[in-house]
Design a protein around this nucleic acid. Structure first.
Lengths: 359, 359
DNA sequence: ATGGTTTACTAAACCGGTTTGCTAAACTGG
DNA sequence: CCAGTTTAGCAAACCGGTTTAGTAAACCAT
C-alpha cells in the first residue's frame, strides 16, 4: 500500500536502474566507474552515458559499507557545538587538524554531544577515528568512551592507556605567568578560573583538568614568593569577554582591590580589560593582567595582552597525526603521550604596580 | 587465503556474532536494541548482556543504509578547509548554523574540496543536505553541483532556481561605507578587494560575486559625489592581516597618498591599520579606514574599526533553517531567496581628513 | 477438544552498492 | 582445426544492519 501517492520528486536512480536501462548487469555498471579496464571501452562509455542521463550517482553510504572506511575524522567535545564555534581556541586548533588531514583526503565531522551521552554520540558518528578534546579525567563517561572501540586521540587529558594523548604543559605556563606578576612586585592577585568546578587544591599530583593544572602552577609560584591567596580571590566565570568583565566588577564590588589578575582564559582577560576601563583604571598602570592561550586576538587588545602561549595549532596537527597513525594499526604503538611546551608572552598589559609594593 | 595472518587486533563484533553467541536470530538482536517490546524482557536482557560482553556496537554505516538518513548536514566552500578555519567569518557563520541544527540532532560535516572537484566532494559526502558558501555565480562548477541532486542551500550566491539562496545586501552596505568616507570629505580613496579576480566593473546588474556587488556599491557612491577612482586605486589582496598590510605599503610605495581606505574585508582593514602605524600615520587623523563584515575582533582593534555590519550568525541560522525545510520536501517551496540587511557601524577609525578637503 | 488470538521469535528480503568466481565467446597459435 | 588463453560480462555472495512476513507454541474462551 503506497502511503504517499504522488510525493517523491525524483526517486534518485540506483545502480539497478542504470543496469536495466543500459541492458547490463549491476556489476558492469560498477565496473564502468571503478574498474573500466574490465569492460570493453565502448560498453563502459555507453553505461556512463546512461548513468549521466539518469543522473545516477553512487550512494555514498552504500559504497562505504563495503569500502570499510569513511574518509572522515570526527571532533568531539563535551561542550555543545554552539559553544565550540563561539570559542576562538577551536578555530585555531581545528586549523591545525585540517592542515594534516585535508590533503590525505579526509573530511571533518563535528560531533554534537547534545542529545544523549558522549558515548552514544560517538557510536552513531560515521568516522574512522575521533579526536576528543576538553574531557577532564574525572568526566563520568571516560570509561564508556574508551569502550566504544573507535580509534581515539585525547587532547588535554591525562594519560590514557591504549590511546594517544596530547597536551601542553599547563602547569609550567601558569607558573611562569604568576611568577611574572610576582616578580613585578604584585602581591594582591585575583585568579579567574573557568569551567564546571573550581578544581580542588590538592597539591599532590596534577589535577585531572586543564584548569586544575593551571591552578597548580599559580599556587607553586605563590608558594615560592610566600604570598597567600584568599579563598575570595579565586573566581570562576565563563570563558567569555562578558564573563571576565562581570567577574572583575563583582570582585571589585566585594571590596577586592587586586593590582594583578591571572586569568586562565584570554577571553575573560579581555573582559577584565573592559571592566578596568569602566572603572577608570588604566592598564597596566593601575592593573596588570595576564591571560592564557595566546589566541590571535590578544595582539589587538588595547593594550596588547600579556599571556601564556600554547601552540594550539600545532596541538591540532599533532593530534591529527597521532590519529592517522592509530588508523593504520600496523605502523606502531598506540599509547603515545606528548606534552607540548608553553611559554609566557609579555606584551603590554603588565607592569609593576604603580604604588610600589604594598602590604 | 589469509593475506594478513595475525594482524587484526579485535575484529569488532557484528550482529551475527551476538546472535550466535546468544542463541537467537539476527533479527532478535536488532529488536533487543530497537524494539525491545517485541521480545520477552528476559530475552532482550540476555541479548543485551551478550552484546555488552562482546563489545558489540551497531555499525553506524550499515544502520544508515536502511535508515535512509544520516543526521548530518555538510558545509562546502570552494576554499580549502585550512583557509576556512583561518577565517573568523566562518566561525561566526557556523555558530549560527549549529544553533539551528544541533538540537534537531544533526552533526556538522566540513567537506574538503581539495582533491578533485566540488562536485565530487559533494557526491561522496555522507550528508542529508549541504550548505554551499562562497560560490560565485561564474564558478565553473555551479551546474555540476546543481545536478548532484543533494538538497542544497546557497549562501552569498545569486538566485538559483530550485535551491534556497540567502545573502546580504552587499551593495547597500558598500554604498553606505563609501558615502560615509565621501561625506567626511575624503576624495582620495584606496579600495581593497579580495578574491580571485577583480570583478569587471560592468555597471549593469549585480555582478555574480560578493566582491562584485560590493564594488558596485562603492562605485555608486563615487558617482553620486562625482569622484573619479583611478584604476591604480583598486588593489586586490588576500583577506588577511598580512595581505592588507602589504597591499597598503605597496600602494604607498607606488606613490599613492589616499586619505581613506575602503576594504572589503575586516582582516585586510586591520592590516592597513598596522601599515599606517609603521608609516607613522595616525588613524583616523591621517588615514580613515572602513572594513567590511563587522567580525567580532573589529571591536578590539586600535582604534576600533568602522565597518559594514552584516548579520553573519543570522545568515548561518537562516541557511540552516532553509536547508532543514528543504529536507522535508512536503513542507513547502524550495526556491526561497532571502536577502538580509547590512548597515554601517561607525567606530573610531574614520574622521574627516585632517588637511581639509584637498584637490 | 476446538478454533481463534497472542506471544515470541525466525527466515528471508532489503538497503545500494562492490567483489569474487565463473562461463561463454572471441582470439591465439601450431 | 582444435586445444589454450583472453576478453567481456553475468550471477551471486557480501558488507552489516533493519524490517516484513510468517510460524510454532502458548494462551484464551467456549
Amino acid at each position: 500500500m503506497n502511503k504517499r501517492v504522488s510525493e517523491a520528486p525524483t526517486p534518485r536512480a540506483r545502480i539497478a536502474d542504470v543496469a536495466r536501462e543500459a541492458g547490463v548487469s549491476k556489476a558492469a555498471v560498477s565496473f564502468a566507474f571503478n574498474s573500466p579496464e574490465r569492460l570493453k571501452p565502448q560498453t563502459a562509455d555507453r553505461i556512463r552515458q546512461v548513468a549521466t542521463v539518469l543522473g545516477y550517482r553512487p550512494h555514498p553510504v552504500a559504497r562505504m559499507l563495503t569500502a570499510g572506511s569513511t574518509a572522515t575524522i570526527g571532533i568531539l567535545s563535551p561542550n555543545p557545538l554552539v559553544q565550540v564555534f563561539a570559542n576562538p581556541f577551536f578555530a585555531l586548533f581545528t586549523e591545525g587538524v585540517v592542515t594534516v588531514i585535508e590533503d590525505r583526503g579526509f573530511d571533518l565531522l563535528f560531533i554534537s554531544p547534545l542529545h544523549g551521552s558522549l558515548e552514544r554520540a560517538m557510536e552513531r558518528a560515521i568516522v574512522d577515528g575521533v579526536i576528543v578534546i576538553g574531557l577532564d579525567s574525572d568526566h563520568p563517561e571516560v570509561e564508556a568512551i574508551r569502550r566504544v572501540g573507535v580509534p581515539t586521540v585525547l587532547v588535554d587529558a591525562p594519560a590514557w592507556p591504549e590511546h594517544g594523548v596530547i597536551g601542553v604543559d599547563d602547569t609550567a605556563g601558569a607558573l611562569a605567568a604568576a611568577r611574572h606578576l610576582l616578580e613585578l612586585g604584585h602581591r594582591d592577585l585575583l585568579v579567574l578560573t573557568m569551567e564546571p568546578s573550581e578544581p580542588r587544591a590538592d597539591s599532590g599530583a596534577d589535577a585531572g583538568s586543564v584548569m586544575g593544572r593551571r591552578m597548580r602552577g599559580y599556587r607553586l609560584a605563590l608558594e615560592e614568593f610566600q604570598v597567600e591567596l584568599g579563598a575570595d580571590c579565586v573566581r570562576q566565570t565563563p570563558a567569555t569577554i562578558e564573563g571576565g568583565e562581570a567577574a572583575f566588577l563583582r570582585a571589585w564590588n566585594d571590596g577586592l582591590r587586586p593590582t594583578g589578575v591571572l586569568s586562565m582564559s584570554d577571553a575573560a582577560a579581555a573582559g577584565v580589560l573592559q571592566a578596568a576601563r569602566h572603572l577608570g583604571m588604566s592598564v597596566p598602570d593601575d592593573l596588570s593582567i595576564v591571560g592564557f592561550d595566546d589566541l590571535p586576538f590578544t595582539r589587538f587588545t588595547d593594550p596588547p595582552l600579556t599571556t601564556v602561549h600554547q601552540p594550539v595549532r600545532r596541538k591540532g596537527e599533532e593530534a591529527a597525526r597521532m590519529l592517522l597513525r592509530a588508523l593504520n594499526p600496523e605502523n606502531g604503538r598506540t599509547g603515545e603521550h606528548r606534552v607540548l611546551e608553553t611559554r609566557l608572552v609579555v606584551r603590554r598589559s603588565t607592569a609593576p604596580p604603580v604604588h610600589g609594593v604594598r602590604r
